[in-house]
Design a protein around this nucleic acid. Structure first.
Length: 278
DNA sequence: AGAGGTACCTGGCAGC
DNA sequence: TGCTGCCAGGTACCTC
């Protein structure tokens, strides 16, 4: 499911219900997620107040006085606010009941998600400290991306999906951003011109902002914290459209596999950069 | 150090 | 209908 827009949508939906609320009861039904949930998590967070909820990349961070609860939705995770107790379904792994009687329910069929606890300053945490800049912040600029790309031989699509370079760009939006920037996904990162870096950064920001505005992309099963889908699906120009014709030029879109991920592009609109053109 | 592949897990779907 | 194999929105970790 979730790339940055979906995580951001989830966070914004959650915030008003959970901020400054005490976690009064925690039920864990399944401890085996991507990493085991700490056995004593319920004891640790019980009666802790959520001071704030923020996002770093695709990690959701619930800050308390004693530490931070780290949540990740993985591929199929979902966080929902229940206003009254509801029987747990098969993949409802965790319920956190708040002092206001609302319940945060974590559901994740594929169990690639994570629920962890840390007392470390969060930016020193193993999962967080190596993360690149937030794509919507000014730190993510064409100058920055150009510097990072020098001498890198990875395809640009893999490059922008690398969380050490920039966080939050998953497979859907990587495909879409490269189409918008008119860059071939196989182009080696180090071969992009400054002009292409500029277009790419603008495209990534534009796509992510638009997707957040639409409440994310629901392909199959993404639902926000209110159980509603996102509508960005209707704006996708290449993702999921391999073999269909390009909206801009009618050429048949090609679908290839790149780093085991499905990659769709227009062979006419998206040209490879010529090495050393810069 | 960088590039590429593997692993984690379930569900849905195409093909036989 | 039922089996098999493949694919899926992520990413840390392993090997070369």
């Amino acid at each position: 499911m979730p790339e940055l827009p979906e995580v951001e949508t989830t966070l914004q939906g959650l915030l008003p219900h959970i901020k400054h609320q005490k976690m009064v009861q925690i039920t864990v039904r399944q401890f085996n997620l991507r990493w085991p949930i700490p056995q004593n998590i319920a004891k640790i967070i019980k009666n802790q107040e959520i001071n704030d909820a923020t996002r770093r990349g695709k990690y959701l961070l619930l800050a308390t006085d004693k530490g931070t609860l780290i949540l990740h939705l993985g591929m199929s995770g979902r966080l929902k606010i229940l206003t009254q107790p509801t029987p747990a379904q098969k993949h409802d792994h965790i319920d956190i009941t708040l002092a206001n009687q609302k319940i945060i329910r974590f559901t994740d069929p594929r169990r690639f998600g994570a629920v962890l606890w840390t007392t470390q300053p969060i930016d020193q945490h193993k999962l967080i400290k190596h993360l690149g800049p937030e794509p919507l912040n000014t730190g993510f600029s064409s100058h920055y991306l150009f510097q990072q790309a020098q001498k890198r031989n990875v395809p640009v699509k893999s490059f922008i999906m690398d969380s050490k370079i920039v966080v939050g760009v998953g497979n859907i939006y990587a495909n879409e951003a490269l189409f918008l920037a008119q860059i071939h996904p196989m182009t080696k990162a180090g071969h992009l011109t400054r002009e292409q870096h500029k277009r790419l950064v603008v495209a990534i920001k534009k796509i992510l902002r638009a997707a957040i505005k639409q409440g994310g992309t629901t392909l199959k099963d993404f639902l926000n914290s209110e159980g509603k889908p996102g509508y960005f699906k209707f704006h996708l120009k290449v993702y999921g459209r391999g073999g269909l014709s390009c909206f801009d030029c009618d050429t048949i879109l090609e679908e290839i596999r790149l780093g085991q991920r499905s990659t769709v592009f227009c062979p006419a609109c998206q040209l490879k950069a010529v090495p050393f053109e810069n």
